[in-house]
Design a protein around this nucleic acid. Structure first.
Lengths: 226, 226
DNA sequence: GCCGTTCGGTGTACGGAGTACACATAATGA
DNA sequence: TCATTATGTGTACTCCGTACACCGAACGGC
């Protein structure tokens, strides 16, 4: 019979490892998460972790899964409110990756799509399908949204770099409807585009100029010449 | 006087290091590029490289700079042909990152914006400015394009993952106007949206719903209700 | 032509990473 | 009670980036 006064053995389960790793990444960044460092924090020898995670990849996969579980459930709304639904999902994701700054890089480098990742995408997909989007359009809309479904836009250039020497300081356009961390404005623009596509019953196999390499602009894309 | 028959000392310049690194990355992936491995290929001791690159970061920066130099010059076109100009630039970039598969990850992880990176962005920016876009709109358009200016769309989900268990195999919508490697269709959709924004004289400080957290959809974004 | 300087390659070494493998110990269930 | 299974330990290997001291060869001024 186990001695009840003794520490109850605290069996170092996967979840605690993941939580410790997440905590570590939150405070010290993803690079600070090493098997050795993590083990030390958990007061355990590095190899002990391998009873619970396959390897470091798996650890990070697990971390991502774990935080994605924090995503609040978005109450389903009327299908016609798809815009608002998308906003809600994206907003929740943005909050999440803001809370866990490392998640951005983690998400981007993940190769295996874990269930929670797929689930989020699936929820978004369903929003469109329920709103009556064709699977074709839905598919493309998801592409259109891209990483923005995670609340971040491609940060390859984040302000400050877009001013070129000799130009006026570009008069930061982010005046009222700020676009700063992930592109709220941008999302709206995309949603506008999307609803237009839908109304136009857009299909991917129509309206594309034939693969002619250049040509004299055979016809503008959809309608909208310039 | 140096013996002309002797190998002329081949001084292992920076450029040759970068070329070797690029070649290595092309064939074996970015992870295969290690200072030690690279040195071995160049038949030199690892530390020799450090006379030419500050550290590995700098090496990869250099690799990116080097391949970006491959970007062909796009002849300036009439400002009204801005769509075609954007296509040309993006297409060139896509070719590039296709030729060098590692470039995608390299670009994404770069923190310091090197001249060649800025140059590409600058060329794109100029296309819009010359076409009469306001700096405000241009700025947002660049955000809208995001990583697509490098010819790739956020690959977080690349087909095959978007089918959920129980659904039909989603009937790959990429029939004729294929969207496969980077989103040609998507680019067109965005360009359509962009030209519409321009015609509407869109400004970032108008049309955004106030930062009300949820609210009863105070007014739709631009026009386009639903 | 001599000679200091500077440039570029060498050798050694350190600390940290991930993790394979054999082992020990603690929990479990028959 | 004892065998089985789960879990933590210890040791060791390989690979990584890179600091530092050294050394030969090229070079520029005299």
């Amino acid at each position: 019979m186990p001695d009840p006064t003794a520490i109850p053995r605290r069996p170092l389960r996967r979840a605690s490892i993941l939580r410790a790793a997440i905590h570590l990444a939150d405070s010290d960044g993803l690079d600070a998460v090493s098997m050795r460092g993590l083990a030390q924090i958990l007061d355990v020898v590095p190899m002990a972790l391998y009873r619970h995670v396959a390897d470091k990849e798996d650890l990070i996969d697990g971390m991502v899964e774990e935080i994605l579980a924090e995503l609040p459930a978005i109450a389903p709304m009327r299908p016609t409110d798809w815009r608002e639904a998308v906003r809600a999902h994206v907003h929740a994701a943005r909050e999440l990756v803001t809370r866990h700054a490392w998640a951005r890089r983690a998400l981007e480098t993940r190769t295996t799509r874990t269930p929670a990742v797929l689930a989020h995408m699936e929820r978004l997909t369903q929003v469109f399908l329920r709103a009556g989007f064709s699977t074709d359009l839905t598919h493309h809309v998801m592409h259109l949204l891209g990483n923005r479904i995670w609340g971040f836009s491609p940060e390859l250039f984040d302000e400050s770099a877009t001013v070129l020497p000799g130009n006026p300081p570009a008069a930061e356009p982010t005046g009222s409807g700020n676009d700063a961390p992930g592109g709220k404005v941008t999302l709206e623009v995309i949603l506008d585009g999307v609803s237009r596509l839908r109304r136009a019953k857009w299909r991917s196999d129509a309206g594309m100029p034939p693969p002619s390499p250049r040509g004299g602009a055979p016809r503008e894309h959809q309608s909208a010449r310039e």
